[in-house]
């Protein structure tokens, strides 16, 4: 499903000697995985790379397809349609209502208007966000926008879900509903990768937890990166399927 090898990730200087470190990651179909790390540890860069939204160095295979800088824009577009990526500060089209914004992925996929309106209404009701349906996104608080973007990401039931989930700390009710949906999606074969800087929220779903380094590395770490970059930073694999080296 996802095979990253020797990926060069930019990180904040206080996390690592130099401005990048090497990462390898393997995720199978149906995996549900948390990546925990403090701010600047490279979580967002990793998700953006997986979402095909930033250039990268290394070997990257996604949906059994090699991704290189020469991969055609048509292929990238079709792959992006299979990825749901939720950022911490999600973008909205300010000229469209919340309902139209959430329906965008279905509209892009060619779903009929009546059908995507019904789907949108259902998912908004499930997450108890239907009162915002006719509002413009710009008028809403950031946390509400994040929840709405979350529904937009889920509405297409993508095979790969990438979620920056730090806002969930402040949304306990929404978290319960979201984890219920994520478990269903994982059981139906979707691969789900969530990132957070607080591992207290990772306990609810039965998921693997991978830790990114959170303190300044020793001299030995930096020597190891330089001499043997493929061995990379000291991530820990605590559970089953995913491997992050």
């Amino acid at each position: 499903m996802i095979n990253l090898h020797d990926l060069s990730l930019p990180v904040a200087p206080h996390h690592h000697v130099g401005t990048e470190q090497r990462v390898s990651l393997t995720l199978q179909r149906g995996a549900l995985c948390w990546i925990v790390g403090s701010s600047g540890s490279g979580k967002t860069a990793l998700l953006e790379t997986l979402a095909l939204q930033r250039p990268f160095k290394g070997v990257f295979r996604l949906f059994d397809q090699d991704i290189t800088p020469r991969t055609s824009s048509r292929t990238l577009t079709s792959l992006r349609q299979r990825i749901g990526f939720l950022e911490e500060n999600p973008l909205f089209c300010d000229t469209l209502t919340v309902c139209e914004n959430i329906a965008l992925p279905l509209e892009i996929n060619g779903v009929k208007r009546s059908e995507y309106l019904r789907e949108t209404s259902t998912i908004l009701s499930w997450f108890q966000l239907d009162l915002y349906a006719d509002r413009l996104p710009a008028s809403l608080p950031l946390l509400v926008r994040w929840q709405l973007a979350c529904t937009r990401t889920l509405i297409r039931r993508p095979p790969l879900l990438l979620i920056e989930a730090s806002p969930l700390i402040s949304l306990p009710d929404f978290r319960v509903r979201l984890f219920s949906v994520l478990n269903d999606l994982a059981q139906s074969g979707s691969t789900i990768l969530l990132t957070t800087n607080d591992d207290s929220i990772c306990s609810d779903p039965p998921a693997s937890i991978l830790h990114l380094p959170s303190n300044t590395p020793s001299k030995r770490d930096s020597e190891r990166d330089t001499l043997s970059p493929n061995l990379s930073a000291p991530y820990s694999d605590q559970r089953r399927e995913p491997r992050l080296s």
Partner: peptide
């Protein structure tokens, strides 16, 4: 453009 960027992220065929 922010909106075009959003559409691209959602897999809109920009070509």
């Amino acid at each position: 453009d922010k909106n075009l960027s959003l559409l691209e992220k959602l897999g809109y065929p920009l070509s």
